[in-house]
Design a protein around this nucleic acid. Structure first.
Lengths: 362, 362
DNA sequence: GAAATTCATGTTAGCGATAACATACGTGAG
DNA sequence: CTCACGTATGTTATCGCTAACATGAATTTC
């Protein structure tokens, strides 16, 4: 009634050559596969001579163990999946370094999946990793409805998960984040303390990404100092669901250009991240204005470049590598000690780094 | 004689809860596992009602197929591994996007491994991916002895491999690259044509990384125009094996600072990549000199930022995403059509992008 | 109306590894 | 001398899935 033909398999012309197996090694070394297994995994008793004979054959045959078979039998692959939204982002890079630092020591392999900020690929990444039976997942992508749903199902079904800066909670998934609300608040307060009253924000759309914590901090600081939030000063963040991360300089440039065209333009701007801020810097320079004299600029993340642009950029630093490390530790604890343990949560403080791009308002 | 105890397994306290299997679904849907398999994989004949009944149970039980078992049986995991040296590099990001574009359409999952520019981790990445029986590998890390050796063994043992910009050849591994020698030549020639005679190079060490093609192009251009290569103008690239990619601005800054201290300083510099160039720009500005009037600067890669710094950066663009796409296509052809096909090689042309940071010598 | 074909399912065997148990030999204790 | 234990292997039975083949029923063909 339903004919569904697998066209794919028809296109495979040549079979992979058969890989060397444990049994092959066993035959050549005149032992049983079990003994070879013991040698490979350095477990149990093996006579030195036997061991060496086996190892010789292993090397000669260029044997590589089959992780699929091994994982299937052992119900464990010693593999962790990390899901990030944007590979080009220095934030992801630092995060992954922190994660690897911890995992490597404990003998786990890290596979990274990139969602390119798309909800569909977010879900796909989770499923691929779950299908391939990663022992656990570290998820550092931004929250989205379908992703959160899928994630909940996976966690419910028993996969250990650590979340990084994701706005989603589950009783059995640990959560690591930085206090970006406070970070956004501090940066904005810094500008206010310098005497600025018209402070723009570059990188959110008022219709969409209002969940952005650093933007909420911006609003909070304004409120607290009785400054009204002028919607014409909020720019950028528009466009598709598919915005590749690397175009954020573009967004900063375009956003700032828009702000400069206002009749009453801001005397300071706070950018969603450093790339955006750098784009803004450039737009200001091209307009023939000076930073920070005419317009002060603050960014977020303290990417390495922030201290290498002119003027150097005032920004907010979050302990990125530490977040990666802790997320990995949480995950390993859950995997190796107690998969049912209640959620653990840790929020890191951010640090305002004042550099040349901000100064008192004229 | 040899007691080797596996301490690891002793530390595992709680077992993962048993995952739902095909057999469980089969029982609940009152069919055999084979029928469930047919439904899941949309292959063969299944009555509509049966199909729906099975799918209902699958959803209710939140079933996820076991990729290990599946891969083991099918001798194919529909998984490709990409090995990159530096996750923070926009070059890697573009590359991976190109690769994904192609793979996704064909139903393959991409797992990324990062070697952090370390030879040891390069090898580890190959082995992890081989162990987990990725159907093929795309390798975009820089060549190193141990890595090349391991790679040769893996290719010999039948794993399909595509190389990107790696200085290593094997009769059964395809190779995609950009003509960085010519790119380096063009950039240097551009500076020479502008009348520069003292042209520095930032980012190689004369004792080590002489294999860098773009540096060879630099040398070639100098030779051809009868300019002597002044070793005091070659800086940077030193330090450990472990240099994280993100510190290249640092390298550019430090290298340029060194050049500025020379009694006869260069009137132009060519940097190994754009980050290095941006570091150099900053060093020049901080020294109170102007770009390009006092010193001209050229970079390499045309990262998005290059057109968003002040002054905008003259650089060399290579078709990065195309390289990723082609490497993926080569790999799929090898996997699905003919694993024994002779090596295919493609070198893309680079393009000199002249912007504000270069101008005629005074 | 018998043979051929399509549809719908089931049965069997094994992918490559290892946990758990079984076997057998030495060696020192009692 | 026997028992117990440490040492060094081997045997068996899966892990979860699917290729290949087998089995019938329904439908079509000549």
């Amino acid at each position: 009634m339903h004919v569904i033909v697998n066209l794919y398999s028809m296109s495979v012309k040549k079979q992979a050559k058969r890989q060397v197996t444990l049994a092959d090694i066993a035959t050549l070394a005149a032992v049983t596969p079990m003994t070879v297994s013991r040698v490979i995994n350095a477990s149990g008793y093996v006579r030195v001579e036997t061991r060496e004979r086996v190892l010789r054959v292993v090397r000669e045959m260029n044997y590589r163990r089959n992780g699929l078979a091994r994982g299937l039998k052992r119900q464990r692959t010693e593999t962790i999946g990390l899901v990030i939204g944007d590979i080009a982002n220095p934030f992801s890079a630092e995060l992954s370094r922190g994660v690897r630092e911890v995992l490597e020591k404990r003998g786990y392999t890290l596979f990274i999946c990139v969602s390119e900020h798309s909800a569909k690929e977010d879900v796909q990444a989770f499923e691929s990793l779950a299908d391939h039976r990663a022992d656990g997942l570290i998820v550092a992508t931004r929250s989205c409805k379908s992703g959160d749903e899928r994630l909940r199902e996976l966690i419910d079904s028993g996969i250990p998960v650590s979340l990084i800066g994701r706005d989603f909670r589950h009783p059995h998934a640990d959560l690591v984040s930085a206090d970006n609300l406070k970070g956004g608040y501090e940066a904005t307060k810094h500008l206010i303390d310098l005497g600025h009253e018209r402070i723009g924000f570059i990188g959110v759309s008022l219709t969409k990404s209002l969940g952005l914590r650093r933007f909420q901090g911006y609003q909070e600081a304004l409120n607290e100092h009785r400054l009204t939030l002028d919607e014409s000063l909020i720019v950028g963040g528009g466009g598709s669901d598919q915005m590749p991360g690397y175009s954020t300089e573009e967004m900063g440039f375009a956003g700032m250009t828009k702000l400069l065209r206002l009749k009453k333009r801001p005397t300071a701007v706070f950018a969603r991240n450093d790339f955006t801020a750098i784009g803004a810097l450039n737009a200001i320079k091209q307009a023939g204005l000076r930073i920070p004299e005419d317009i002060a600029v603050a960014g977020y993340d303290d990417i390495p470049l922030a201290s290498h642009v002119a003027p150097t950029l005032t920004t907010v630093r979050q302990p990125t590598r530490e977040q990666g490390r802790l997320a990995a530790r949480f995950l390993l604890r859950r995997i190796e000690e107690d998969r049912e343990r209640p959620r653990e949560e840790k929020t890191f403080d951010c640090e305002l780094i004042v550099r040349q791009s901000t100064a008192p308002a004229k």
